[in-house]
Structures are given as C-alpha cells and as structure tokens.
Amino acid sequence: MGPGSFGRSGPLPIGQSVSIRVWGQGAEHAVLLHCSLAHAGAWDGLARALSDRLTLTAPDLVGHGKAPDYDPAQDFHSQTKADALAHFPDAPCHLVGHSFGATVALRIAIEHPARVRTLTLIEPVLFAAVGDSAARRANDETLAGLDPAFAADDLEAAARVFMAAWGGGAAFDALPEAQRRYIVPRMPLIAAGHKVLHQDAANLLPRLAQVACPVLLIEGGASAPVIGEIQARLERDLPDARRVIVDGAGHMVPITHAADTAQAMRGFVGG
C-alpha cells in the first residue's frame, strides 16, 4: 500500500511517454499495476527477472509519476481502472497488481474478463474482505491518526501515520528528501481510495465468482496479519486461486524480494 523503496526506473521505450515502462520482448504480455504512492519504476526488479519470457508494461497509475492527475469529480478507483485499461494489449494478458494496484487488477478481471489471461494479486489491501477480527482492528488502530491529519490538512502528518503502518519498515523521516516530497502531496490519494478498500464501494467481494482466469495470491510471511486474512478470503471465494507466501518478506515483497516473487510467478504464467 505504501512505497517502501521505489526510486528505480526500468528502461523507457523510445517514443513512449515516461509514464510507461516496458521490459522484455516476449510473445506474451503482462501489465503491472503498482502500489499507492509509488510509480511504474517500482516494478523494475521483478520485471527484469521475468523479461526473458514476457513483454511487461507498467503504467504510472492516476495521480502518480507522470500519469494524469486524479479528478476529484470522479471516483478514484474507477478513474484508475479506466486509465490502466488504456495501456492493455489487444490480446488477453497476464495482469499483476500490488497493494492498491492489486485491487484495481481484481476489478479489471471481474469487469473485463476477456482482457485477462491470468491474475496475480500481491498483498491486495481490500480490508473490506475481513470481518471484525483482531487483525482488522489492529490495522484500523495503526491508521487512526489519518483522519485527524486530513481534517487538519496536515499531509505530512498523514504521511507519517501511513508510512508507519504501510511503508515497508521505512519511517517517513528516514526517507530521502526527494521521496518525502513525492509522497506528501499525494496523500489525498490514500483518502480517495478509502471507500473501496475499507467499504468495498466497488462491489468487488460479491463478484469474486465472476473472475474467469486462474489467480495467484502472493504475500510476505512477515506481513501484517490482516493481509493473511484478506488472502484467505480471496483464496476461498475465487473460483481458481492458489496462494504463495514468501518467507521473510513484508508488504513490499515485489520490491524487496523481487527474485522470489518472480520465481513464484514463473510457473503460473507458463515460463
């Protein structure tokens, strides 16, 4: 859900917008949707590890990197989904999402099944999938300072709260100055996604049975317990899902453990 370390960028294709990164030249295509407060370059390690077999495209999501700004008159999740779809190939692709990006990927698989060949969900933060459990309450408590910070229009305070909970172990004040400058003005995006993640405003959970493709669920073994509960719910309710836990990894598993994540994906995407 948070950025962890995302300062690396993949190679930029000549003639394409810098809001899109592309790796590899494989016959099959994959589209990668990053987490909140990151950008397409966050996928560099994982994409390079799979570039021998796939052509991988990662767009900056709405409000991130060089992508279009979020339009507050629109639903943020819906706007993000529509913009992401604009970067899909014509043929069905392997779709991969991390954290918030995983919830967008899940929605695309539900609403546009013909566009998705396989779906990989890495630590999807669909908190609405979890009931009133101790893990859910603990997560809510770690984020309790967000509402007062947003009410006071103190985006830096909001960033500190958010990073403490979902920054992959990186305290806000310990981040490089450029990264802090990137995160703070984008904190309203966290608030904009709240109703979908916490209340399922996109109506994803009742439609899980509509996912027609195989699904790979990946999580870190050291992640917050609420992630395991979310993954268990998805594994139970999706028609064709398998689950992989990467030992020692946390929420930023596709960045911190890119090689392990790629290894988990290789057989799933057919390579």
Rank of each mutant, 00 (worst) to 15 (best):
L126M: 12
A86E: 13
D75R: 05
D83M: 13
K81W: 07
V104R: 01
D140R: 10
P124S: 11
D75F: 10
I108V: 12
R115D: 03
V130R: 06
I110S: 02
R117I: 11
A105N: 06
V96N: 06
T80S: 11
A114Q: 13
A128S: 10
Y70S: 03
A129R: 07
L126Q: 06
A82T: 13
P72H: 10
A102M: 04
I122T: 05
D132Y: 01
Q79M: 07
D69V: 15
I110K: 04
I108F: 08
G65A: 05
P72R: 09
V96F: 08
A67W: 10
P89Q: 02
L106G: 01
A67D: 10
R115I: 05
E111W: 10
H87G: 09
D83T: 14
P113C: 03
T120E: 03
A67R: 04
F88S: 09
F76N: 03
F127Y: 12
G65D: 01
A105R: 03
S133F: 09
P113S: 08
Y70G: 07
R136L: 10
L85S: 01
K81N: 12
T120N: 03
H94A: 06
V96Y: 01
Q79V: 05
L126K: 05
H112F: 15
S78T: 14
A73M: 13
Q74K: 14
S133E: 04
T80G: 10
Q74F: 13
K66D: 15
G65L: 07
P124L: 01
A135S: 11
A84W: 06
A84Y: 01
K66M: 15
P113M: 03
G101F: 00
A82I: 10
A138K: 10
Y70W: 13
T120W: 08
Y70T: 07
E141D: 15
K66P: 13
L95Q: 07
H94Y: 10
V116Y: 04
V125I: 11
D69P: 14
L106K: 01
D83P: 11
R115V: 05
D69H: 14
D90A: 15
A105E: 01
H112S: 14
D83R: 13
Q74P: 12
A67C: 09
I110Q: 04
C93Y: 02
A105F: 05
E111R: 11
L95P: 00
V116G: 07
T120I: 08
L106F: 03
Q79N: 08
A114P: 09
Q74N: 15
K66Y: 15
D140A: 13
S99N: 08
A102H: 05
D71W: 05
H77Y: 14
